[in-house]
Computed example of a mutant assay.
Amino acid sequence: MRTLALGAVLLTALAGCASTPTVHTDFDPSAQFASYRTYTWLKKPEGRSPLVDQRVVGAIDAQLAAKGWRQAASNEADIGLAGNVATQQRQTADTFYSGPAWGGYGWGRWGGGMGMGTATTTVRTYDVGTLVLDMFDMKTKQAVWRGTATGTVPDSPEAVNTKVQAGIDKMFATFPPGSAPAK
């Protein structure tokens, strides 16, 4: 019984890891991130829910504030932010097999037989969401940083908010480039 409970806990932990958004970042190595202190939103992300959009912007603002950056007017900002949100429907097919059915012992009609197995295929449709955040140097108008977070979109608003926050936290874990990862 203890083995079964341990197995259930392990599967739950693995499922939690699998649901973490996939995050990638890229940056211009010649950009002087130490000199950037202010930012402005050039384009705020817009998705299917204005409430989620507000939470995304708020989470990014909080991450930048924690790094010592502050929001400024566009003519005074060091960095311009452009965010985009996209969702795409995907499908997966899961096939489960049962059989073949073996019966009794012996051959043919003397005590045994073989039955054909069956296969059941279930198609599951789900949404995958991607947040892309680009940073531009306002003086040079050149891209200096990009972060992307991609993951399945849960059905409940609470789960969506949790995943959005996890993706943004992971995106900014080593921001600005060259800094130590957050612990």
Rank of each mutant, 00 (worst) to 15 (best):
Q63N: 06
G113P: 13
G115Q: 12
S98R: 14
N84T: 15
G58N: 10
Y97E: 10
L64Y: 02
Q63E: 15
P50L: 07
P50V: 14
A65H: 09
T87K: 09
W107R: 04
Y105T: 03
G111Y: 12
A66W: 00
M114L: 12
R109L: 05
A72L: 13
I79Y: 05
D53N: 12
Y105V: 10
L81G: 00
V85P: 05
Q88K: 11
Q71T: 07
A93T: 15
A72M: 11
L81S: 02
E76C: 03
D61S: 01
L64S: 04
T87L: 13
V56A: 09
N84F: 10
L81M: 02
F96P: 00
G83Y: 12
G115T: 10
L51K: 02
V52D: 11
A82R: 11
L64I: 05
G104T: 02
G83D: 03
T95R: 07
N84E: 15
S98L: 01
T95A: 10
K67H: 13
P100H: 11
K67E: 10
G112Q: 08
L51D: 07
Y105F: 11
A59F: 13
Q71A: 08
Q63D: 02
V56Y: 06
G83Q: 02
I60P: 09
D78I: 03
K67C: 02
Y105E: 02
R70N: 02
M116I: 02
R70K: 04
G68F: 14
A93F: 06
M114T: 05
Q54M: 13
A66N: 14
G58H: 00
V56H: 06
Y97H: 08
M116Y: 09
G104I: 09
W69A: 02
A101I: 07
F96E: 10
P50E: 10
A62N: 05
G112K: 08
A82Q: 06
D94I: 14
G103C: 01
M116R: 14
Y97S: 10
Q63I: 07
A86D: 15
A65N: 14
G108Y: 14
G113Q: 09
Y105K: 07
A77Y: 00
R109W: 08
V85T: 15
G111I: 04
T95D: 10
W107V: 13
P50A: 09
K67P: 05
W107E: 03
Q54I: 04
V57C: 09
I79G: 03
G103R: 11
S98W: 13
I60L: 11
A73G: 03
D61K: 04
M114Y: 12
G106R: 08
G113N: 13
R90D: 06
G112R: 14
A86S: 15
T95W: 02
Q89A: 08
D61N: 13
A73F: 07
D94A: 14
T92S: 15
Q71G: 00
W102Y: 10
A59S: 12
